[in-house]
Amino acid sequence: MQTVNIHNAKTNLSRLVDRAAQGEPFIIAKAGKPLVKVVPIDQPAATQMKRLGFMAGQFSVPDDFDRMGDDEIEQLFGMNK
């Protein structure tokens, strides 16, 4: 993968972006230190994985979840029915 310094990236941004859009990602560095990686939007990162959650499928949400504790909350704020 090509690494370009920030000055060179500013000077040649259109050309670099066109190449990245064609599948040639590049890294922009400042003083030799990598700062950002430019990749096409539709190309997911190699390490990116979709995760459903560590407890996916292990519990269910009750139908009245959004109303749970209503009575206690009303008592705390003095809004008894």
Results as ranks from 00 to 15, higher is better:
1 M>L: 08
1 M>V: 09
1 M>N: 01
1 M>Y: 10
2 Q>V: 00
3 T>S: 15
3 T>Q: 14
4 V>L: 07
4 V>N: 01
5 N>T: 00
6 I>G: 02
6 I>W: 08
7 H>I: 06
8 N>R: 15
8 N>G: 02
8 N>D: 12
8 N>H: 04
8 N>M: 10
9 A>I: 09
9 A>N: 04
9 A>K: 07
9 A>V: 06
10 K>V: 02
10 K>E: 12
11 T>F: 05
11 T>I: 03
11 T>Y: 05
11 T>C: 03
12 N>G: 06
12 N>S: 04
12 N>L: 12
12 N>K: 14
14 S>D: 14
14 S>A: 14
15 R>K: 14
15 R>E: 13
16 L>E: 09
16 L>C: 05
17 V>Y: 08
18 D>T: 06
19 R>T: 02
20 A>I: 10
20 A>G: 00
20 A>S: 11
20 A>K: 03
21 A>Q: 06
22 Q>D: 15
24 E>K: 15
24 E>I: 03
24 E>M: 12
25 P>M: 02
26 F>K: 05
27 I>E: 11
28 I>H: 10
29 A>E: 04
29 A>V: 03
30 K>A: 06
30 K>P: 01
31 A>P: 01
31 A>S: 10
32 G>A: 09
32 G>N: 08
33 K>W: 05
34 P>L: 08
35 L>H: 01
35 L>W: 13
35 L>Q: 12
36 V>G: 04
36 V>D: 10
37 K>T: 09
37 K>L: 05
38 V>T: 11
39 V>F: 09
40 P>Q: 15
40 P>E: 13
41 I>R: 11
41 I>Y: 11
42 D>H: 12
42 D>A: 06
44 P>Y: 05
44 P>A: 08
46 A>E: 01
47 T>V: 07
49 M>Q: 15
49 M>E: 12
50 K>E: 13
50 K>C: 10
50 K>Y: 06
50 K>G: 12
51 R>Y: 00
51 R>V: 03
52 L>E: 10
52 L>P: 04
52 L>R: 13
53 G>A: 06
54 F>A: 11
55 M>L: 15
55 M>R: 15
56 A>Y: 01
57 G>F: 06
57 G>P: 06
58 Q>H: 05
59 F>P: 01
59 F>W: 03
61 V>M: 13
61 V>P: 01
61 V>L: 07
62 P>S: 02
62 P>T: 00
63 D>W: 09
63 D>K: 14
63 D>Q: 13
63 D>S: 14
65 F>D: 08
65 F>A: 08
65 F>Y: 14
65 F>I: 10
66 D>P: 07
67 R>L: 03
68 M>E: 05
69 G>C: 00
69 G>M: 06
69 G>K: 01
70 D>P: 00
70 D>H: 01
70 D>S: 00
70 D>R: 06
71 D>R: 06
71 D>C: 04
72 E>A: 09
72 E>P: 08
74 E>F: 02
75 Q>C: 04
76 L>R: 11
76 L>V: 07
77 F>C: 07
78 G>T: 05
79 M>Q: 07
81 K>Q: 14
